[in-house]
Design a protein around this nucleic acid. Sequence first.
DNA 1: TTGTACGCGTTATCAT
DNA 2: ATGATAACGCGTACAA
Lengths: 339, 339
Amino acid sequence: MKSSKTRPATKVTLGMVAEHSGVSPSTVSRILNGTAVVSQEKKDAVDRAIAELGFVPNPIARVLAGGRSLSVGVVTQAIDSPYYGVALRGIEEVLDAAGYVPLFASGHWNAKEEQRCIDTLRARRVDGLIVLTGRLSDEALRKLGKELPVVVTGRNLKASGLYSLNFNDFEGARLATHHLLSQGHRKIAFISGDPVHPDAQERLRGYRAALEAAGVKYKPALVLPGMFHEESGLMAVERLIDSREPFTAIFAANDQMAFGASLALYRRGLRVPDDVSIVGFDDLAGAAHSIPPLTTIHQAGLELGRCAAQALLDLLADRKPTAQLPEPRLIIRSSTRGA
Amino acid sequence: MKSSKTRPATKVTLGMVAEHSGVSPSTVSRILNGTAVVSQEKKDAVDRAIAELGFVPNPIARVLAGGRSLSVGVVTQAIDSPYYGVALRGIEEVLDAAGYVPLFASGHWNAKEEQRCIDTLRARRVDGLIVLTGRLSDEALRKLGKELPVVVTGRNLKASGLYSLNFNDFEGARLATHHLLSQGHRKIAFISGDPVHPDAQERLRGYRAALEAAGVKYKPALVLPGMFHEESGLMAVERLIDSREPFTAIFAANDQMAFGASLALYRRGLRVPDDVSIVGFDDLAGAAHSIPPLTTIHQAGLELGRCAAQALLDLLADRKPTAQLPEPRLIIRSSTRGA
DNA sequence: TTGTACGCGTTATCAT
DNA sequence: ATGATAACGCGTACAA
């Protein structure tokens, strides 16, 4: 029985291919990696042998011998993050198309764990690294970049072997706030993210800039601390309501907090958008199907992943990365309306 | 300057540890792997040398030499799935605690891609495999189990080297439907999942069983096809409303479709739960913060991941896995009320 | 209990 | 352009 499925039943090695096609192992290796010019004649013979034998190179042996592993490490913060999850998909997509395999590891927003991830990944000899908005110091990242190609998001570092990709959080927040302002809202609450996070600071800046541009006085009582998750958004609004500080709109520094905020409003009998308008940030998958569909700032997670992977591929191929993230866009849905 | 951080600046090998402690490489290896009994004296010397040199075994070389890779392949369907995402976190968590590293790959609900993932993972010499509800045939899985330890979810296969973990979808659906019934609902629509999916069939069975037990006649016009995503839930309800088939409650085969259904209701001016009650299935992270908070069947994704990983660890250690998934539980929130 | 020698499958170096 | 040979770092027979 001749099986058309070419999956190696018994391990077939490069050496066997060499023998089968009457050339030396080195030649086979050269053909596989395009390391040197080989006569068309031998190339054909080897290709045929590879097909006949169903040979698949052993990536383990390859890397031990000093070759590339064709794998890249991706350190994210939580493998199940609704935002970064889609970024991972983007990374997977473009890496796969280029023959690379992603190795994911989660740092859990903890510099120490993150360092452990990186150590593990490097022990596994990844060819490069993508770090999604980590807690590591810029210095540590810079040093890392000297040792292997690295792409980081959420930073603005520049160095050879290190490429940064950053969203314009400031502009996104400005856009969101301006949208509310343009609809006549003046008492706009802001649910901030974890201040440790640079993104959170930028978004606060954007909020303030929009206010200022519109001649609306910034009121500290209207900015509530949050932690980027639903519960914190909910509690922020509860506190806000209890404080009796009047407001007609809320801008949450991310969608998850916006969801929590909506729920708090719902519980207090306040209607969105009739009683209060609300805008989020990120445009998570769920934003379009929340009730009401959430007006938000689109921060393309998928694009983020794709760009990061593409940039790393460039670095790996000794090309200069040019990937740029798209500018944030306001997505108007149904959670906002005139004051 | 003496750095307390013990990260190998220069690669330190097992051989160097051997030399540094005056023993042979084999002895070091034995100590590392507990392969044989070694005198306490040498053991201490080696341990000291390891600490002093900051030695970290090279996993690549280790596996090439025939040892374990301490990595396990995890094939999921989409790296950004809201349900499986948390399962991945559970897997990561228990694997990590045992010194294993997960390698994630996405099959995208496609048997061919799934097979590719498995081939890649095996080429990377994973010690075992976790397959989350794949499209692969039972036969293929059985064969795989003969070659390396495998844990699958969403199936009921039994074989040595192969462990299955399955939720009681039937019971979950029965519970959900019964809840609606017990509140006086009689015209209960069911938004089904993709029928290709065994889970979807089981849930339909559970729905019918509950109906029958309550003496309510099953009405085909009340079951709408869905595809497990929001949009399909939304369209299902639109069709249902347009069909003018009366209904007072909806049971969606998963939360995502329930969200979509809620949105359709909202758009048509129908209130949840005042006009129609709705219950979902899965208990996604977002279910608790949707508006209104969704009554649903808790299918512990985190537990699923943990159990799968634990079972694989057992298999790997030649223990008999005993992990069992918890029974589905009804989580009553605010999307359901009396008819 | 411990050490020696070899092999894992590939790439890199150095010849030719 | 091609081949022989030596690594890569570790595990494991086998011998002692």
